[in-house]
Amino acid sequence: MFEIDKLSCGYGDQKIVNDISFNLNPGERLAILGPNGCGKTTLLRGITGILPSTGDIKLNGDDLRKMSSQDRSKLMALFTQMNNVSFSYTVMETVMLGRYPYISGKLFSKPSKEDYKIVETQLKRFGLWEERNKLITELSGGQLQRVLLARTFAQTPKILLLDEPTNHLDLKFQVELVNHLKNWTNKEDRAAIGVFHDLNLALNFADKILLMDKGKSVYFGDTENLDINELNRIYGFDVPNYMYESRLKWKDLKSNENENLQKSL
């Protein structure tokens, strides 16, 4: 469904991402893993056309590069870290901006009833309906993150690219977001690509993994077949062991709590 072939991009003469290739089937979710500075965000920027790139980007066989940027933005949405929030829009207005690709280009364009409906659905989904008239300049980090996520979903794309979407979110919303993404990709012809720093969350989210190191692809394939040795080598320590240790701590915590519970009884 979504194919990236030999994509390279960077800033000016400096190439950051080299010859990345992968493909996703309908309903699949890809997590891009790799340490800081390995080119994850740059890759997303290359795919969405924020940075000039070489190589093929195809959706259902159609070359996305040959499309107008407006048509492309109806098919592909990007959730980014780079948001400038210095103007006091309301939550509702901000999420409505996600409908921009559908309402721009017409003289004195106004949102349609359908646009309002989509925005309402997203506001409710992200628990923002009550806050819809608040100003985004007055929100907490987590609320703002949810507003910007709702806006990305309001773009109703086929391909969703998310750069660290769980930043600022508490655990409840993190889990809800991942579950929502799973539901979302299971409907129609959709696929999602996410960059997560939390490996637990990434494994929970993804059925495919792209492991990157220094701008190159080290592994692309199913989550189950990910080579742990490669992962450890790139991150520079024993990742599963670290995860296992923290799991043991959880176990302890739980048993302490049980003891306390038992004592109090």
Binding site: L78, N83, N84, Y89
Partner: peptide, 17 residues
């Protein structure tokens, strides 16, 4: 509308076409 989108920064604006 375009001016509204542009206040959020270049990256968002490009991603919205």
């Amino acid at each position: 509308n375009m001016l509204d989108v542009m206040t959020f920064g270049d990256e968002q604006a490009i991603a919205m076409g």
